[in-house]
Design a protein around this nucleic acid. Structure first.
Length: 578
DNA sequence: GCCGTTTTCGGCCCGACTGTTTTCAGTCG
């Protein structure tokens, strides 16, 4: 009997843990960075590491001989000898201490070596008893700040959905702009990069009087607690339970600061390395000629475009700034022309009040038309999904007729009556072939039995992909951000099957779903899988979620021609073969 | 530990803020 397969996630966890341990040990920081980098590279992979040859692993960025050996060792033994050795020297609980604001590897190591502190609970106890203040480099203030940080560690661990974060950031930006204390105000960071979730908000402003701007910001009514405030930056904890970093620079430095504050950190590091090679140096104030190892004459600073240009490359859209090949692409003028909102002509997946939606078919159609679209797929859940009041075959045929009647009298706008049909546990569909044939467009999705093995799930979904009635696969992860992990599935195999059968895959815009991952969508494009953006709207107010789906598409390097949403109603008909 | 449009060895981004210190270490992004 073969032993259970080691997942990519487990390998990533162990390598990342190894990096943390080495950091605590006080190892060479670049060696630590190598583990972080490797974990980051692997997390963007769609293929199973267990199916990759050593030379393929070695070709991945940040994976050299050492990491390849580590990966193979984990695959064959389920663990790492080096890691087990370190665990005997340093208790694993210490790693948790690093989640605390103001607690880094040096302090964590000191606390453990002197006071035997190896958990957040032990740390709190020691701080309350006033035992930290006498340690070298510590004092009463640091003791208090660490105690507060320990209470906060759990709350801060959750990342906020981008949809919520955007609203909060927009409100703060509004207030800053109205105040008159700043010239410009903009949300940067992972929010600007369009990530699924954000860990904190980054607000960049320009002002002639920086300290006035800082004062205004730290006194906003949304601020619960000021974590730090200086001349040019402030960090606060908002009542909305998220950290907000604020930065102010002179108007002349806006572009440089925006670049710096948008990140990602990895993207910025590579840009700075590039600059050094060209005899320049980049900071948040601009890009400068390097003279005698120091920043000399300023080359550019006002706009991001100027700075990229000084580095010999085109401006890179924020969604691509993850150090996943965008810098090389920009240098060789091979950046994609990313899809934009105005390219989209319709939505493929949403629901009416017949099942778990809030509005009637006509209302959904009107709302879609108001988005400026030309057509919309309106769907509902299939019979077995009882929690969502799934449609019986009789209801199904009635609503198909309803859509036909709408189209008969509608001018310049078209409804495609679709259904989100459950993929049953064994891969069969939740309606008969005859019923499926009557539906204009079939969207197949897994909604039940999430816990089956990766092998079973892969077979199950591929069986649906191979079903000639199925047009689109939805929810190819089943995750609920912050609530439910993705189900296990071999994405690479599924993408291969989708490409072969020309079954489309969905990029879902529901804020807490956002299946599939950007890296998977990028891989899908490479393999030639048709892709669709969907809102999965459950009311007329949710068509705006197309923006979230668009974020995924842009992070996945997708262009207009990669998405079926850019087709006309006529072209959609041809694609469906109707 | 990784990597190469100077290098297969010797580099590996940069600055703000805090709290501890008497000039700087640690942390953060």
């Amino acid at each position: 009997m073969s032993k259970p397969e080691t997942t990519n996630a487990e390998i990533i966890r162990l390598l990342s843990l190894m990096g943390h341990f080495l950091e605590i040990k006080g190892e060479n920081p670049f060696r630590v960075r190598a583990y972080e980098r490797a974990a980051q590279t692997l997390s963007g992979l769609t293929r199973n590491l267990s199916e990759m040859a050593p030379e393929e692993l070695g070709n991945l960025p940040g994976i050299g001989p050492g990491m390849t050996a580590h990966i193979q060792e984990i695959l064959s033994h389920g663990n790492l000898k080096d890691l087990e050795t370190i665990k005997k020297q340093i208790p694993e609980g210490i790693i948790k201490l690093l989640d605390i604001q103001g607690m880094g590897p040096k302090r964590a190591k000191l606390l453990w070596q002197t006071l035997k502190i190896d958990s957040i609970e032990a740390l709190k106890k020691a701080a309350v008893e006033g035992k930290l203040r006498d340690l070298p480099g510590f004092g009463e203030k640091l003791e208090q700040s660490i105690l507060k940080g320990a209470d906060f560690a759990q709350a801060a661990a959750k990342r906020m959905l981008i949809w919520d974060a955007r609203t909060i950031a927009a409100d703060i930006v509004q207030r800053l702009k109205k105040s008159g204390v700043v010239v410009e105000a903009v949300a940067a960071g992972s929010l600007r990069r369009g990530k699924e979730t954000v860990g904190d908000l980054d607000i960049l402003t320009t002002a002639r009087n920086g300290s006035k701007a800082i004062e205004f910001f730290t006194k906003l009514e949304q601020v619960e607690r000021v974590l730090g405030a200086g001349e040019t930056k402030a960090t606060v904890w908002l009542k909305n339970q998220i950290q907000c970093d604020f930065r102010v620079v002179a108007p002349d430095s806006f572009g440089a600061a925006l670049l710096y504050f948008t990140g990602s950190k990895e993207h910025n590091v590579v840009l700075r390395e590039q600059a050094l090679k060209l005899g320049m140096t980049i900071n948040e104030y601009g890009i400068f000629k390097l003279t005698k190892g120091k920043a000399g004459r300023k080359v550019a600073s006002k706009t991001e475009e100027e700075i990229y240009k000084a580095l010999g490359m085109k401006w890179i859209p924020p969604e691509l700034r993850e150090n996943r090949g965008e810098i090389q692409a920009a240098r060789s003028n091979k950046l994609p022309k990313l899809i934009e909102l105005q390219d989209i002509r319709g939505d493929f997946h949403n629901h009416t009040k017949l099942t778990d939606g809030a509005n009637a078919l006509e209302e959904m159609a009107e709302a879609a038309r108001a988005m400026g679209w030309e057509w919309v797929f309106v769907g509902d859940h299939s019979q077995s999904l009882k929690v969502a009041n799934g449609l019986s075959p009789a209801d199904l045929h009635r609503t198909i007729k309803e859509a036909q009647e709408f189209n008969a009298k509608s001018k310049g706008f078209r409804i495609f009556r679709s259904m989100e049909v459950d993929i049953l546990k064994d891969g069969r569909m939740d309606y008969t072939d005859e019923d499926l044939g009557a539906i204009g467009a079939v969207i197949a999705a897994v909604h039940t039995h999430f816990k089956i093995s990766g092998d079973e799930m892969t077979k199950r979904v591929i069986r649906a992909i191979e079903n000639s009635h199925v047009d689109i696969i939805a929810h190819l992860s089943g995750r609920l951000l912050n609530r439910r992990e993705p189900y296990e599935i071999n994405v690479e195999e599924v993408l291969g099957a989708a490409a072969k059968n020309q079954t489309a895959l969905e990029l879902n815009g529901q804020p807490e779903r956002q299946d599939i991952f950007d890296t998977q969508a990028k891989r899908a494009k490479e393999l030639g899988v048709p892709l669709v953006l969907t809102t999965d709207a459950h009311s007329v107010h949710q068509f705006g979620y197309i923006q979230i789906a668009l974020n995924i598409a842009r992070r996945a390097w997708l262009e207009k021609q990669d998405l079926l949403n850019t087709m006309s109603a006529k072209e959609i008909c041809e694609w469906l073969g109707n």
